[in-house]
Write a protein that binds this DNA or RNA. Sequence first.
DNA 1: CGCCCAAAGATTGTCGACAATAAGATTGAC
DNA 2: GTCAATCTTATTGTCGACAATCTTTGGGCG
Lengths: 228, 228
Amino acid sequence: MSITAEALPEVTATIADRIFDQLRQAIVEGEIPPGSKISEPVLAARYGISRGPLREAMRRLESSSLVERKPNVGARVITLTSEQLLEIYVIREALEGMAARLAAEHMSDAAIADLKRLLTRHRTDVAQEEWQTYFQKEGDLDFHFRIVQGSGNRRLINILCNDLYHLARMYRCQFGMKSDRARDALKEHELVVEAIAERDGELAEWLMRRHIRKSRKATERRLAAMQE
Amino acid sequence: MSITAEALPEVTATIADRIFDQLRQAIVEGEIPPGSKISEPVLAARYGISRGPLREAMRRLESSSLVERKPNVGARVITLTSEQLLEIYVIREALEGMAARLAAEHMSDAAIADLKRLLTRHRTDVAQEEWQTYFQKEGDLDFHFRIVQGSGNRRLINILCNDLYHLARMYRCQFGMKSDRARDALKEHELVVEAIAERDGELAEWLMRRHIRKSRKATERRLAAMQE
DNA sequence: CGCCCAAAGATTGTCGACAATAAGATTGAC
DNA sequence: GTCAATCTTATTGTCGACAATCTTTGGGCG
């Protein structure tokens, strides 16, 4: 499942849009490593395009804060520091908490049923401990993604899906996160869904915030251990 | 006081950056009216520049969702619907609530003293009922702006100051909002600052969220009355 | 030997021109 | 008279080239 706000057509009409998607993926997945300088002539040649559309794509990457640009100097892929990662968690706590509240109010019964099915699938995944690293983290984002979609707030969806989730994914690719929190996280997910199913927005928000806060603290601990 | 995240140099180095600022201002203040089509040749001629930098600026405006663009067709200034305005309030409730909590934890005593001074100034402004319309709304944003700055979360600051506040301002220019809530709002501001001064993040968040929720409801009522 | 200055190289920013797509107008047919 | 199709026109998307700026390399001076 692709993490984007709207269903994008197979091949985007304009080169600038296509190159934007490609570059974003390349950056998020680390193919273009963090901190590396982005040379317009080189990249244009690599993708077989002109510098015009490339620069337009770069301007959008700049807005997504995936690259940092200095006038007359050039652009570099951002390097996500631990502080920045924790900042993202804080914002997600606020926004996704609200998303959970809205989802409890607006989500259709069918969508909730779907969400429950997703969780049962995750439950079987967690049972097979081996697969942990990759599939579970991907599943975690998938869960959050659906809650946000369920909020029905288009702008909220955009902020989270067009920017923050890409950054979160980038961080994960950068550090090869393997969380030992899979079981706990799953349980927390279940509680959130339960609250949503009961249409208890207040509780859903509270649970979602606690869930993300716990994730942040786990990451904080892992970062501290890494540092030593 | 200019509503931007970082202090921008007097004149920006590159044309694309400068034209971005100018266009954003023109759109926010209604000089380029909502829904109007943006013709690249016309605008380029108007500003005496080429289409290259203009298109780069447009890509950034697109990312800020101030213009909507269809491939091979063109770009139009967005028209803020009432639904979208309310969506923004919801997001602000979540984000600024969190900002208030963080401000209570991180803000320096000097900054808090500054904030208090700002409020006393607003208090005298409110006393002179005449000035209401313009200065008070501007002051309202100024207050929120400072709280967000006080959070110390750079990304949070960016989201609010680079996108949402411009949208809020655009809406205000579009509808010439005069709120009858000045006195209530000021009181709510004072409570928030008090909580921050006491370093009570929990309460600060709660008060800020209630404040924004009340503003949203007032706007909702006004929109409903307008509609009839 | 190290530091500073200058020139060469490379890269970014900007421009005008061409190609491709979409909107609008004109003409023809029913 | 209305609809449809085609042609015209205008706008968007893309490209290559030039100008301005920064970086780097080389040389000279202290």
